[in-house]
Nucleic acid binder design. Structure first.
Lengths: 133, 133
DNA sequence: AAAAAAGTGATAATTATTACTCTTTTTTGA
DNA sequence: TCAAAAAAGAGTAATAATTATCACTTTTTT
């Protein structure tokens, strides 16, 4: 995997965010600085970086592909109103990680994906309707 | 919600399957019997039936939308090689349901989605490559 | 039976993602 | 160092799943 300005920019942008952005989110944030960057480049780099284990591709019940620069094990919550994805602090969730791993093993599975759902703070306040899911 | 031949056919077809089919799966199975049925009709009926709580729309980390005629609470496994989705027998998983509900509540979430992943029996046997995911 | 509401089939439109072609940049090794 | 080879980028076309539209038919209501 070669080095390139674009790859560094994608990686740094992702790491600077806690929003679990899509390829297009990153594309839009990079454009002001790199007006010539192509959306395909962003997709390709996110794909390669996650294949290399440098970033994480999220497995959410979302038709949009989201990425995370934080490789530490943690759960996510998705807002069922606006679709925003945020981290769940993982204190006191060790038992849950264990139960899930055990359940997977017992059923011949090697892994699992969990996502918590609910209405996020923003949506609860601004009662305005947002992009439904 | 009115009655129609097509709606009944979609519902019965879904209920006869344990494969968690997509709209297109159902469309293809219905065509021999109902050659004039339209794919849009299948999509619309699956959507309405799940909105009415008669069937369940699955929340999987899959860009294909899948449906389940079985409303009882249970987990799913998705084959990471061929993408097939199957049920996980829920005996001895009560503790897990409880842990998940508690974790959700503790973090201000109202629900959760879980999916287990692994290579299914078919793919382990037929070592032939299938539609990767 | 007439009117209203809901559903259908056919097809167009949308949206996220991937593929492709050609150009540019980066790496490699004589 | 510097040319050839390899990898990456830009721009755009193609794909695939899903949703929307619309004229017409079926079902339900009155």
């Amino acid at each position: 995997m070669n080095r390139s300005m674009q790859r560094d920019a994608v990686l740094n942008e992702l790491r600077s965010l806690r929003t679990h952005p899509t390829a297009e989110d990153i594309y839009n944030r990079l454009r002001p600085r790199m007006p010539k960057i192509s959306i395909g480049t962003v997709y390709r780099n996110l794909e390669q970086l996650s294949a290399a284990g440098i970033i994480r591709k999220l497995e959410l019940s979302d038709r949009l592909r989201r990425f995370d620069g934080d490789l530490s094990p943690h759960f996510h919550r998705r807002c069922c109103s606006c679709g925003a994805v945020s981290d769940i602090p993982s204190e006191r969730l060790d038992a849950l990680f264990g139960e899930l791993a055990a359940a997977a093993a017992r059923n011949g599975c090697s892994g699992y994906n969990v996502e918590f759902t609910g209405v996020c703070g923003d949506c609860r306040n601004n009662k305005k309707t947002q992009n439904e899911e």
